[in-house]
């Protein structure tokens, strides 16, 4: 157990020493995706704003609830798209990195950080859009917003662990790539991304309380929507994050040398 843990820490600290590699590769990735486009990465911003706009246009409730809905959807989609992108890219991570894994002795965590950085750069464009929507749509800036920032940071901190877990899952169990893809597509409807939970009974009640993603969304959304510190959501998220990190360290420590044989 100690040896497994040491193995993981060794892999991670080597990767941190090689931070220049994953920083360079992540920038390459962003550049590649937008190389011959006119707007470049600004497309990410356009995409996000278009999505929020569509949801607000179609689902905005009538009457007094209407005011905060744009902000609600803007934050919901920001976090949800980020998590969805991270998870769906993670399950195929090691397969996509095959050429480097087979040709170099880089620690696996380098690839994890490469994806983590790439995803957060992309999320940065959506955050810009989200802030603009928030400023235009109503709620005035208040000190509880800082809790939202803390929520975002917490999500960033758990990202490498999530990537690790899903990457190992996808490597050892290739079918999971399709399963995860499908679950994520359906998952949006079972997560309070664009629907609002107001204590009603039924499916939405379970989808709200038993869906782990709810809490990731709420730690960013509640401080802005309600102006309060969402203690419960933060507690649940922190516990889940620690658990994810534990699993990630175990997988990394125990199986990192096997990945080369199975991709």
């Amino acid at each position: 157990m100690i040896a497994v843990f040491n193995g993981a820490v060794d892999d991670i600290s080597k990767a941190m020493r090689l931070h220049r590699v994953w920083i360079a590769l992540a920038h390459e990735d962003i550049g590649d995706q937008h190389r011959r486009t006119t707007l470049g990465p600004l497309w990410l911003l356009v995409n996000y704003v278009a999505f929020v706009g569509t949801f607000v246009f179609v689902f905005q409730p009538a009457g007094k609830d209407a005011a905060g809905y744009a902000a609600y959807v803007a934050i919901g989609l920001l976090v949800w798209f980020y998590l969805m992108e991270v998870m769906s890219l993670s399950v195929s991570l090691f397969q996509r990195e095959e050429s480097f894994i087979e040709g170099t002795t880089l620690p696996l965590f380098v690839y994890v950080m490469r994806l983590a950085l790439q995803s957060s750069i992309r999320a940065g464009y959506a955050i810009a859009g989200c802030v603009a929507i928030l400023l235009l749509s109503g709620p005035s800036i208040a000190s509880p917003w800082l809790w939202s920032v803390a929520g975002l940071l917490l999500i960033l901190l758990v990202t490498p662990a999530m990537i690790t877990v899903f990457a190992f899952l996808g490597a050892f169990f290739p079918d999971s790539q399709f399963i995860v893809g499908n679950l994520l597509r359906v998952g949006m409807f079972f997560t309070p991304v664009f629907w609002v939970y107001n204590g009603q009974e039924g499916v939405q009640k379970y989808a709200y309380h038993w869906n782990p993603f709810t809490y990731f969304l709420e730690i960013v959304r509640l401080p802005i929507m309600k102006g309060e510190f969402p203690a419960h959501a933060f507690t649940v998220t922190i516990v889940m994050s620690l658990a994810t990190w534990m699993i990630a360290l175990l997988l990394l420590g125990r199986y990192r040398r096997q990945i080369i044989f199975i991709i």
Partner: peptide, 22 residues
């Protein structure tokens, strides 16, 4: 095909290779 980035220029690949070697 191993350990090089096909889309990047030769120059960029030299940089990447160097970074990988520490």
């Amino acid at each position: 095909n191993i350990g090089f980035r096909r889309e990047a220029t030769g120059r960029r690949n030299i940089v990447l290779r160097g970074l990988i070697s520490g």
